[in-house]
Design a binder for these strands. Structure first.
Lengths: 244, 244
DNA sequence: ACAATAGTGTCTGTTAGACAGTATCGA
DNA sequence: TCGATACTGTCTAACAGACACTATTGT
């Protein structure tokens, strides 16, 4: 008699031991961006443990099988532990895996990418030394761990696309914010200047932002109108890209 | 003396054993679409082993740590084993993970989505009984394994977007093909009819397709011009979406 | 000749970009 | 008043959609 012919799924699961199979090291890393003082910044953490101890790398870690019900839970938990809050915008970026990217063996990281206002986690980040914002334009001065530079590039490219056809980058700003600031975030992401008029028209047409009615003095010059995010912000897609 | 203070990365790796940590079951699954007889089809495989033995599910499997250097290698290997060839278009779709999606425990699948001409794997698929094309409009009649229905939906949505701003769906057609056929593929993906004129204009403007110079009789009526894919097809993006 | 299918010519509406103009602040 | 910044009015170019028209086949 061949036992496998009549084996039930219950029997199979009772005898299943994952340690009998080759093990893939699986982690979740996040690329968190913000905007501060006319610069795009990305959050990095200095690694305390081997491998790559001492290097700056993306905030990430193992899945906690008891606490995390989904991959997004892991990303939320890790980011909250580094910033004090869950970012207002997060999406899955992609997975990066291979035999050589981690010296411990075949590994996969599921990467998320997120946006947060600089002020939302200012005090939390100032209270520690191992977590810092870095100017994304100066990452070449740093030697990052693993393949995290490539993952950050993928995150930038994702938000570059979003800046072309959505107003999602508004999540990088503290409310209320001016359209001048938001346009600047888009310009940094896209890598070119944008027409004021075109940008304002899109904001009005979309309904993805709400005018608060207040104004803010901008140093010298006419004060700017202030806006906040509408609940539909994340869903709105322009059918045509901005930018010449 | 505290050994960890002076421990080198080499020492750490020598003592590293992945079995000491909680194990996440990691697999790669692919959503392969094609077009045949005015229908969108997706490739499914009937599961031979537990869990979910007997159910139809996405082609997928474990990473072969000796053969696969990257995640895409795994997707290629599995798809080639089911169709006889590597599909001409494949991209990473996203990762689906959680505590409850596989009865064996916490699991992650890295999903790819791909396109192939129906004829490219016709003979290979006809030679086996456990691998079949299914009409994507009739998947509700099937009880799929795991969360694979949700993954297929994500793949459809990905290609729905691509159909709005690219000509990537041309990979689902055998060369040479007519614009009528390609437009039909786009219409099925988008879920609405498209203007002939708009579609032809985009093809001409993009340079992503090359006219072969031949024609094909289409039953009755004027014969249609035939096209093949240009090498730039995958890169081209329209700045504006098609469709009202 | 006719139906059926493929492709074209041309008009219109929409919207991005350009640019000049107006509005409102500080100095 | 002047410079600086924010916002608006309006023209133009580009392009999608509509639709009528021509082209080419089988019956």
């Amino acid at each position: 008699m061949d036992g496998t012919v009549t084996e039930t799924e219950r029997d199979y699961l009772a005898g299943y031991d994952p340690r009998e199979f080759p093990i893939v090291l699986t982690t979740v890393d996040s690329v968190l961006f913000t905007y501060h003082e006319d610069r795009l910044k990305v959050l990095l953490v200095q690694r305390a443990n081997h491998p790559q101890a001492g290097r700056w790398a993306l905030p990430g870690g193992y899945i906690d099988q008891d606490r995390d019900a989904t991959l997004e839970d892991t990303a939320h938990r890790v980011l909250a532990s580094k910033t004090g809050v869950v970012p207002p915008y997060i999406e899955q970026l992609g997975s990066f895996g291979g035999a050589g990217r981690d010296p411990r063996g075949w590994s996969v990281t599921i990467a998320y990418t997120a946006l947060i206002p600089f002020q939302a986690c200012l005090t939390h980040i100032e209270s520690v030394t191992d977590t810092q914002w870095f100017d994304v334009a100066r990452l070449n001065e740093l030697e990052l761990g693993f393949d995290h530079e490539a993952i950050i590039d993928a995150g930038r490219e994702r938000f570059r696309q979003k800046a072309l056809y959505s107003l999602v980058p508004a999540h990088a700003l503290q409310e209320p914010f001016s359209l001048a600031d938001l346009r600047r975030v888009h310009e940094l992401l896209i890598g070119m200047t944008l027409s004021r008029k075109s940008f304002i028209r899109r904001v009005e047409e979309s309904g993805a932002l709400i005018e608060t009615g207040d104004e803010a003095p901008s140093g010298r010059g006419r004060p700017s109108k202030l806006y906040r995010r509408s609940p539909h912000l994340d869903d709105y897609r322009f059918i045509r890209n901005i930018g010449k």
